[in-house]
Design a protein around this nucleic acid. Structure first.
Length: 612
RNA sequence: GCCGGUGUAGCUCAGUGGUAGAGCAGCUGUCUUGUAAACAGCAGGUCGUCGGUUCAAGCCCGACCACCGGCUCCA
């Protein structure tokens, strides 16, 4: 019943820089600038659409947005027009003026603005803009500049002229539901970004550009790693040989690590009887995420959205003694989950994916130790892939839950102690756990500082009950085991996407699908030596390609560079005479001629160490 | 699923109702090369799919499919 919160890590294409909380005035030095820019933008939009309705326009990471209800859809061309008007308003240096108004005054002021009226109603009932509770009795304030007055708690800049004329940019138009609820009307949202200077704006735009260059969908095609096909269907990934090579290497490493750390490897089928999913509760709670059943001999079978019921069956296949515990069953389990068409995204949000899933069944007295080892193991595996910057999120018991509160407390405390023992920063999401148990999610920051959720470690007080799991305790009595779901890399598809972006396609030698390209200077004169080098490197376990094309060396180097191959081995007369290769790194560094044996030893050492 | 955008050669893109284009990649030939693109030629497209408007549709209209940016969802 592993449930990753995948969406949290991928929805924004605008980069999130190490922040997981919305900006606040005291925490974000850009708050005033961006909030003020949002107001200026709203004025500009209302100039274009005098009958337009305004909703909310907060600062966000890296920028701001404002939501509108307008008489016609905005087009990208409108953004230029709006920016022009914003520049004029900024140049006019209108002061931002705050004032306190009564509810009645506010209602009069915003009489043509139904969304504002709704906010005012909320405010007078003690709710803040986003519907969360605010201080009761908080006053209603507005901020005005030029012709635009907005319901707003501020703070703002002193005047519009403090927004740099060349430090902001409107970036995109999107649909957004009023108050984020799809039952509400859909508004038009304009996103913008604002910085203290053109230099800072340019730096931000460069980061966006860099993120675009690293986009795993782009690199997936350029490096021939994976694809999807209209004929196969959306959200279903085809792993090409080079992508599959990386996956094989990653899986082999992780599987060996699991076996070395007390896990038993298992395999389970892709489908199971409806009865199984009724028992597990998936058909009552998770049916929307499951595909329609198939009929086999008059019985309904479902493609699995999770692996847990199968691992549970393995546990149940015989009587378990307390001496047998813990049992740790691991599998690369391929699951199928329905995702709404609009949610699909590259490798990170798909309809079929493979989890590095495991289920741990243990005694109550083993919980603490098991959780500690699991988190430590997770960090070990992730670090091997070059991910080093972690943050943990502990989610505790929600209002509605199953199981015994003492079990919850014990499990939550174990999670907390384990994460503290690893000295990783963590946040607590009080009440944020699933109904069946508390959990810890591990998120990593990649090379661009973007946060991705990967590992999740979840207690389950539900399934052991539903399936009637027991072990025989030392007093001869059956007891209920604790059950923990965990995935470390999450899904292989999504992890691959993260890796691609983290490395920008330049994988470390141990993961590179092609580790070296042999580049003969002349295919006629050095082709034979090239084949000999290829053969010997291959025999030494190195993944090597020989570029036999009749092109000049420069082009062959360029092609290898673009494919981000770690080593380019140039061979000419000198190298052939010395039984050597002239080694060029993808960084552009030239190591000069190395004896072939020396090169082999170097690569083998790097692979053995999984050097990054 | 919803809002908006996009869909033309393997890739990146031009083409605003009148004979489908470029660069790269591919193929062929010449060149046999010393650290990021030799030169020339050839070939390659039912313009996402289906339907409609028109004498004529890549272009206008409709439906559907997919992708992109968001929203929503993620027991």
């Amino acid at each position: 019943m592993l449930h990753e919160r995948r969406g949290a890590t991928l929805a924004p294409r605008v980069i999130i820089w190490r922040t997981s909380m919305p900006p606040t005035p005291d925490r974000d030095p850009y708050y005033r600038l961006r909030h003020s820019a949002a107001h200026v933008m709203a004025q500009a939009v209302l100039e274009l659409f005098p009958d337009g309705q305004i909703a909310i326009g907060p600062p966000i990471d890296d920028g701001f947005y404002y939501d509108f209800a307008l008489s016609r859809p905005l087009t990208p061309e409108d953004l230029g027009d709006i920016e022009q008007r914003m520049r004029r308003i900024i140049s006019e240096r209108h002061p931002f003026v705050a004032r306190v108004v009564s509810s009645d005054e506010a209602r009069t002021l915003f009489t043509d603005q139904p969304f504002k009226l709704e906010l005012i109603e909320g405010l007078s009932r003690g709710q803040s803009e986003d519907g969360s509770s605010a201080d009761v009795g908080s006053v209603i304030t507005t901020y005005r500049h030029d012709t635009f007055e907005d319901l707003c708690r501020g703070p703002h800049l002193a005047h519009t002229g403090e927004i740099p004329l060349d430090g902001f940019k409107l970036t995109s138009i999107a649909g957004a539901y009023w108050r984020g609820d799809e039952r509400n009307p859909q508004l038009q949202r304009i996103y913008g970004t604002a910085w203290e200077s053109k230099t800072a704006l340019d730096a931000y735009l460069w980061r966006l550009e860099e993120a675009r260059r690293r986009d795993h969908r782009r690199l997936g095609r350029e490096l021939d790693l994976f694809s999807t096909s209209d004929d196969v269907g959306p959200g279903l990934i085809l792993w090409h040989p080079k992508g599959a090579m990386i996956r094989v290497l990653a899986e082999d490493f992780s599987r060996q690590a699991h076996l070395a750390n007390g896990y038993d490897w298992v395999y389970s089928p892709h489908i199971g009887r409806a009865h199984l999913w009724e028992t597990s509760g998936h058909l009552s709670f998770y049916k929307d995420g499951m595909y329609a059943p198939m009929d086999i001999d008059g019985e309904a079978y479902y493609a699995k959205p999770m692996n847990c019921p199968f691992h549970i069956q393995i546990f149940k296949s015989q009587l378990r003694s307390y001496r047998d515990l813990p049992k740790r069953y691991a599998e690369y389990g391929t699951v199928y989950r329905y995702e709404r068409s609009g949610a699909l995204h590259g490798l990170t949000r798909v309809r079929g994916f493979t989890q590095d899933d495991a289920h741990i069944f243990c005694r109550p007295d083993q919980v603490e130790d098991e959780i500690g080892r699991t988190i430590e193991f997770s960090l070990y595996v992730l670090r091997a892939f070059g991910l080093t910057d972690f943050r943990a999120y502990l989610s505790t018991r929600p209002a509605e839950y199953v199981g015994d509160i003492a079990d919850w407390n014990r499990a939550t405390a174990a999670l907390q102690r384990a994460i503290e023992a690893q000295h990783i920063p963590y946040d607590v999401d009080e009440g944020g756990g699933a109904f069946y148990g508390p959990k810890i999610d591990l998120k990593v920051n990649d090379a661009l500082g973007r946060e991705w959720q990967l590992s999740t470690i979840q207690f389950d007080f539900n399934l052991p009950e539903r399936f009637g799991l027991t072990f025989i305790a030392d007093d001869g009595q059956p007891r209920r085991p604790y059950m923990v779901h965990r995935a470390l890399l999450g899904s292989m598809e999504r992890f691959f996407g993260v890796l691609i972006e983290h490395y920008g396609g330049a994988f470390p030698v141990w993961l590179a699908p092609v580790q070296a390209v042999i580049i003969p200077i002349s295919d006629e004169k050095h082709g034979d030596y090239g084949q000999s080098v290829e053969q010997r490197l291959r025999a030494a376990g190195i993944r090597v390609e020989l570029d036999q094309s009749r092109e000049r060396m420069q082009l062959k180097i360029r092609r290898a560079q673009l494919q981000k191959v770690p080593y380019m081995l140039i061979i000419g007369d000198k190298e052939r005479a010395a039984d050597a290769v002239a080694v060029r790194l993808r960084s552009g560094d030239d190591l000069g001629a190395l004896p072939l044996d020396t090169f082999v030893a170097r690569v083998q050492a790097e692979v053995a160490a999984r050097a990054l």
